[in-house]
Design a binder for these strands. Structure first.
Lengths: 262, 262
DNA sequence: GCCTAGGTCCCGTTG
DNA sequence: CAACGGGGCCTAGGC
């Protein structure tokens, strides 16, 4: 068995550590790119594109080895404050508090976390090489349509995908059985007005270039009410397309690469 | 001092616990709505709007008391798998593994986390009533414009805000010094084509109603390149407006409610 | 670097 | 409830 399991030494746990000790452990952990977990009572300040203040309370702070920082409150999906990967970190004590500061350049943003008490500090060398695969994404739907154009309609023939036009990228670009150009916009969830606008923009752009009839088809599992009205007004079409069914079709097919079909 | 600090008893830490013990502690923690932190080697399956598989590796799992679940790898801002607040949880052992399952209804989604080894299990009663305030949001910019219409241009007089027209809501609706109607669209970041289209739609709608000249001003800290071209083509205008400065202005002003100005 | 578009987006607000 | 828009969105992909 090639299971990778951490030796006990690679995870260091301090309970209620003095803030001085904590600062040292965090600094060491940052230098060796370990994953740090800090649980304690803190306030947080953020300055950057916006700014925010968070008054004291108990939080969990995760510092990952790529330099991302997450400050989590005891409720909610979102971190209340954060820093994306790549920021510079430092930790030190000042006036009896533990300060953790994370700075990001471009855009210049800073978060400052001020702990007055730590309950738990963990410094870890986590190993994670596990492969992640996601199914039924919009990309799967696009691949399925290219593999099985009949999902859109009988006789539909894709010409290209992710075609660049002035306003953006056309998901699938092809021709119907009567030789008319077709632009397909795919959505993996309920398609709203925005999706219709997107499709309309592409059509406008292509019409401006080719000067002949261009059909627009919105392919999605569902249509929002407002989107339906707009679709009709603009003379566009809708085709029900289920992401899960697309993923199924792909699994059955042995072919993998989009490029093999065009 | 009214500082709330956790007693040591309210945080329970198990190092390398047997999975049976862990299952019991987690089940207890779930029942009493404690915050749980599980660090160990696991695989994760997700089934719902999409589906995913994550092969074994070391991860941190946070279970919050509102029923949100986050599975974090050692890198990246985003959790690799998650469940938003409100899902139902259970924990048990099966074939020598610790299983944590989180189910959400509407949409029906399930994540299953299978641990083969735990490094650390923490069960906590965190207390966090700290107030959070965010400054320099788009709403702040709108408030600032209503308070100080000169931010748009000298002589500008707001009439109303969030005015409903057919395609949506006009951020600020007013009149310039020459009595022409003005529609202001505010963006807190770089304004793209989308913003210009939005503004154009509002103008079209209002022109259709009032049958006289209507100016459109896009107020944002910056203009995207494509947006500028489109703006010129459509005969619209741009006014630089900095969110930070808006937030500043608001802080200086003691008045808080938008409704007081109209 | 900017820009475009997707996301298991999440989240708040409104009809 | 669905629908729509915002977000310090973040992230990936092109140019």
């Amino acid at each position: 068995m090639g299971k990778e399991v951490l030796s006990e030494e690679t995870i260091e746990v301090l309970r209620n550590p003095p803030l001085q000790d904590a600062a040292r452990t965090i600094t060491d952990g940052l230098r060796s790119h370990r994953t740090l977990l800090i649980i304690g009572n803190c306030r947080v300040d953020y300055q950057g594109r916006a700014s925010s203040k968070l008054k004291p309370g108990d939080r969990m702070v995760i510092i990952k080895r790529d330099g991302s920082v997450l400050v989590h409150r005891p409720t909610g999906y979102d971190p209340v404050n954060w820093q994306p990967p790549g920021c510079k970190l430092q930790a030190y004590t000042e006036k009896g508090n533990l300060i953790v500061r994370a700075v990001r350049e471009r855009p210049r943003e800073t978060i400052t976390i001020q702990f007055n008490k730590l309950y738990l500090l963990t410094s870890m060398a986590l190993i994670d090489r596990g492969e992640f695969s996601l199914y039924a994404s919009e990309e799967d739907m696009q691949r399925a349509v290219l593999l099985h154009p009949d999902l859109i309609e009988e006789g539909f023939k894709p010409i290209t995908y992710e075609k660049k036009v002035e306003p953006g990228f056309i998901d699938v670009y092809g021709m119907d059985r009567d030789g008319r150009l077709v632009i397909v916009e795919i959505k993996r969830g309920t398609a709203g007005r925005e999706a219709v606008l997107q499709l309309a923009k592409y059509i406008g752009s292509v019409k401006g270039e080719v000067n002949r009839e261009v059909r627009g088809i919105l392919a999605a599992p569902q249509l929002a009410k407002g989107a339906q009205k707009m679709l009709i007004t603009l003379g566009l079409e809708y085709k029900r397309l289920d992401p899960k069914r697309c993923a199924e079709l792909l699994r059955r097919s042995s072919v993998r690469k989009i490029s093999e079909f065009l």
